[in-house]
Nucleic acid binder design. Structure first.
Lengths: 254, 254
DNA sequence: AATGAGCATTGCAAATAGTGCAACATACCT
DNA sequence: AGGTATGTTGCACTATTTGCAATGCTCATT
């Protein structure tokens, strides 16, 4: 909607790929160097872009601070965290919390596995939306129309042979998930990693977040992991209760 | 330098304070609502801003992803991490890694204490620049002129009675730190917390990062913490060696 | 139900603010 | 020294953004 801002913001993902010099930025944006320079200067003024000693630009410090603050203002996260920790202490595996936003699903919290073999993931990283158990739960809750629209627009990369191959299969899976109220990812993203997930619901019953337990085959088989499902669901329900204000929060006066 | 972009970017810190509706954003920016709307729409288009169900705006998901990517492209962090972990395993206390950027110092990595009493800090959070041990090291390395300029511009909040009170005291402290090659913060930020820190240097000898070990009084006294100094310095030196390419990296072929 | 207040949204004409050009400056390499 | 590649500035032009006023929308109140 605003050309100048649009161009300026396009610089950020570009720099996320790695540091770039003025010429490169101008080229990629398709604008004159002087234009790119002024945009970069403005971004720099706000700390979103940093100019390193070799004159090249990269993403700046303020970005971290902003992301931090944004994260802290997510109250589901705040409420869920202790539950995630407790669940991790009980079962020992990696626990994730994810939310949906504008067609992307991303992890907003994570408690690492106690086992030496850990799966790779990062808070803030968008998840493999077509296969992740948490993504299925979050998308399954969308209204019919929106769900179809999102599913059609997605790419369906075949991470493994068990990955969701296309929109039709995905929608079918979402219907199942919606029905049963929980989801799994059995080797759909990484051959040897399985997840079970359950939804966190707000006061109106809508899914506001999803949590999952993930573990590699070498630690527990898929069947063993599935025995944790009741526990995962109970934990998610506990978070839902607290989030929607139904359950008084333990250890908090007032 | 670019008014439109400048205004748009000013929205981000504003939203970091918490969700805001259109009117509020327009007011704070000092522009007409329609203008604010178009700016927000552009930000939204890039995922930096999200519109929640109650129509208010808050910071968006892409921000997390960008911050993550930026973080991952910092190679000091990559190299330092295993060293921080090892140091934490040895001494058990919280270990931090910080860098300096445009007058701000911020944590880029952290390994939490094994003790139940932990200090509060967050990766990405700007540190208390006038008192933190890592900040002293990073600023002490700046060229004379720049160091003075930065010191004069800072605020000197008295977090505790031991906080650095003013620019003169700060510059004196920086001179000492520069001389001795390590720094401490003994209750300057939080009454009961002490830190010892050492610098990580690049091939040219310039300080590129600083690391610290922090622990509350209730766990170890300041004197006991100081006995860790040689270990902290050795760790920092090991990182420096690897970062500047002098030391071949353990466990990596080629 | 109906009214109205409060907020978001759109089209439009005025002019401000952003653009690309070309010239200049600077660093680096041969 | 000369030349190339890159970053930087001043300026004239016009495309872009702006604020206004009018329109929709949603929700609370009577």
């Amino acid at each position: 909607m605003s050309q100048t801002v649009d161009r300026a913001l396009s610089i950020l993902p570009l720099l996320a790929e790695g540091p770039a010099d003025l010429g490169r930025v101008a080229d990629r944006l398709g604008v004159h160097k002087s234009t790119a320079l002024r945009l970069l200067r403005t971004l720099h003024g706000h700390g979103l872009v940093y100019r390193q000693s070799d004159q090249r630009y990269r993403l700046g410090a303020r970005l971290f601070a902003l992301a931090q603050e944004a994260m802290e203002s997510l109250d589901v996260r705040e409420i869920a965290h202790p539950h995630l920790v407790r669940l991790n202490e009980t079962c020992g595996h990696t626990v994730h919390l994810a939310v949906h936003e504008d067609g992307e699903v991303l992890y907003i919290d994570k408690v690492d596995s106690r086992y030496p073999v850990r799966m790779y993931s990062r808070i803030g990283k968008p998840v493999a939306i077509t296969v992740a158990a948490v993504a299925k739960l979050l998308l399954a809750d969308l209204p019919e129309g929106e769900r179809r629209a999102v599913a059609e627009k997605l790419d369906y990369p075949m991470y493994t042979v068990r990955s969701t191959p296309n929109a039709a299969a995905f929608l079918k899976e979402l219907a199942t998930v919606r029905e049963q109220g929980w989801a799994t990812d059995l080797g759909g993203h990484e051959e040897s990693i399985n997840c079970v997930a359950a939804p966190v619901r707000g006061a109106d019953g809508r899914v506001v977040a999803a949590m999952s337990v993930s573990a590699p085959n070498v630690v527990v088989t898929a069947d063993e992991l599935l025995t944790l499902l009741p526990l995962v669901r109970r934990t998610a329900d506990a978070i839902s209760g607290e989030y929607s204000g139904r359950t008084p929060v333990k250890g908090t006066a007032e």
